[in-house]
Write a protein that binds this DNA or RNA. Structure first.
Lengths: 153, 153
DNA sequence: ACAACCTGATTGAGTGTTCAACTATTCCGG
DNA sequence: CCGGAATAGTTGAACACTCAATCAGGTTGT
């Protein structure tokens, strides 16, 4: 472990380009959502996942997994979303420890209002800048990284 | 503006793969740095940029631009880094409004200790999972997104 | 039936980020 | 050289995220 495997110039440039793009992009998306819909990107993700579910409801731990969130983070987030009336919490029917988060009517309305602006931003900032080939490459690269992360710790 | 341009299935998959990979990856990098070096990734970036500069010092606004950080964020961050003795602030010679952030000896030592672990993590989580072609593609894609973001607001 | 362990979820403290407001200095047009 | 605008940087409040601790309810083995 004495010699560090530094990045080659090619790898450096790729890593920095990716890092820079992602940092700027996530900032831009967050600002757009915050300005137009009054929520951070993480909250938007929660609403999207709930809206895609039949019954618009999901167990907390399942929702945490789907939104790539820790349980703690989700708990805090759902507490805020509940204060705003966008989500409702109820006891799980089968497991008395469990909670179910459910998207309210109002939450659905808010999401429907937020979605076009956000998707438009993704189109404008990402998709429209890439060729169809690059879109495919991005999927493969993303998948490879996800697989690697899932593989070990 | 009535009809939203939704993403095609291909685009959806690519966007979600990228989003998932990046979210998990950044979390992993942050945790590694926090655990092994006691600092978040943003602080590491600051130290790196300073260390690359002749004199290991830079004007605050220049440093903010290089680290893709707001002035406010950098101010707060430098304040913390100064408390830890890793960075020192002095007045800029030419502009009496200006401040210069300088990496201390101790800061350099800390950075040298942190770098191998972080670079190793980038190698393990990203570079080693991709073919050389994909590394090149990632650079192009990142560059395209950065260019797009720079172009307008 | 009970102890030990595991799982679902929440909580609070600590830390970092954002936004808007503010101070101080410099730049620029007339 | 003066007044208004721009620039450099900081600050505090509000908010989100992390980590570790905690609580309650289930599961397992004997």
């Amino acid at each position: 472990m004495s010699d560090t495997q530094w990045l080659t110039p090619d790898q450096q440039r790729a890593w920095r380009a990716y890092l820079e793009a992602t940092t700027l992009l996530f900032d831009a998306l967050d600002r757009q959502l915050q300005a137009d819909a009054g929520m951070p990107h993480g909250y938007y993700e929660i609403l999207v996942r709930l809206s895609e579910e039949p019954g618009r409801a999901m167990r907390m731990s399942e929702l945490a997994a789907r939104t790539l969130s820790s349980r703690s983070r989700l708990s805090h987030a759902i507490a805020r979303l509940e204060e705003r009336g966008w989500v409702r919490r109820t006891n799980a029917p089968t497991d008395r420890r469990g909670q179910v988060a459910e998207l309210t009517e109002q939450g659905l309305v808010v999401l429907a209002a937020a979605a076009p602006g956000h998707v438009g931003e993704v189109q404008a900032r990402v998709i429209s800048r890439l060729t169809p080939e690059q879109v495919g490459q991005l999927e493969s690269i993303g998948q490879a990284i996800v697989d690697g992360l899932a593989e070990d710790g």
